[in-house]
Write a protein that binds this DNA or RNA. Structure first.
Lengths: 146, 146
DNA sequence: TTCTTTTAATTGCATATACAATGTTGTATA
DNA sequence: TATACAACATTGTATATGCAATTAAAAGAA
């Protein structure tokens, strides 16, 4: 996991995956004291306001529905959330945070803020803001086009 | 895997993972006709010039050594490369492309070029160049500073 | 109302990812 | 030289990821 010399691959996919691995490692390490992964943190964050149907949640997370199913599995086992069939349409399952899940998220927020700040400190506030804009553009530009 | 409305998460990690998923899907789809993933393409690309020891290869790919072991497994089974113990230090294993692996890579290059061009067309040449620079900076800035 | 189609979620399969622990081999030291 | 130490790779465990196929339920058509 160590980098030797600045190597600029011409492959956009390699570049973004490499950067994602490095960043993910940083965030996972920050949340590890709570036994929480950044992926799980994102799920909790999206559920803080209201229960959400799994398909809608997968859309928000821009994640395959089947991936979400497996992502939720350990979180359900940990008791951070529950699934309940929707009354009007029993195909639909609503994901809802438990008190434990809510409490965990609130504990995690300061750790998340720390690592966000750390990244900003290392890369620069303007840099990170611009990076965000570009990553959003990537998602918008590529997820709609084939 | 569909996006609904532009949602700008404040989490850098979420942002980059989301973008990485979208881009990876695009590249994997482009290489699918050859039964090849973009991750595997990257490995082949790095081995085209010369055989490389696994630790050195993992360093280049900025990937955990153990991840590399599993990444290589199906590629070895497919006969695209071989592992051989280094003569001077039998701990070291050299990964070397086979003829089949070399041929496959050469077949894959045009498909990779296509998808690279497609991404540039969708996002703009300057945008992609700047994105590359920033992703390289992310990697350099974060992988050295814990 | 029955048959078909569509939609929601899961499961099977395969790869991607990394930490901890292990086994092996080379190097340094007492 | 015997022993401790460091380096290389693999395996165990667990999560991350998505395509294809399946099951269940709702909606639409005959």
């Amino acid at each position: 996991m160590m980098a030797s010399a600045p190597y600029a691959s011409p492959c956009t996919c390699f570049q973004i995956r490499r950067a994602a691995r490095v960043i993910t490692g940083r965030y996972d390490a920050a949340l590890a004291p709570l036994g929480l992964r950044i992926t799980q943190f994102s799920v909790l964050a999206h559920l803080m306001t209201t229960p959400i149907a799994l398909t809608a949640l997968a859309d928000m997370l821009v994640m395959d529905r089947t991936t979400l199913t497996r992502t939720l599995k350990p979180m359900l086992a940990a008791g951070w959330l529950t699934l309940e069939a929707e009354a009007t349409d029993r195909r639909v399952k609503l994901a809802r945070l438990t008190e434990a899940g809510t409490a965990l998220f609130e504990q995690a927020v300061p750790l998340w803020r720390n690592v966000q700040r750390g990244v900003k400190d290392d890369l620069g506030r303007d840099f990170v803001r611009d990076l965000h804009d570009r990553l959003t553009t990537v998602w918008e530009g590529l997820s709609h086009a084939p």
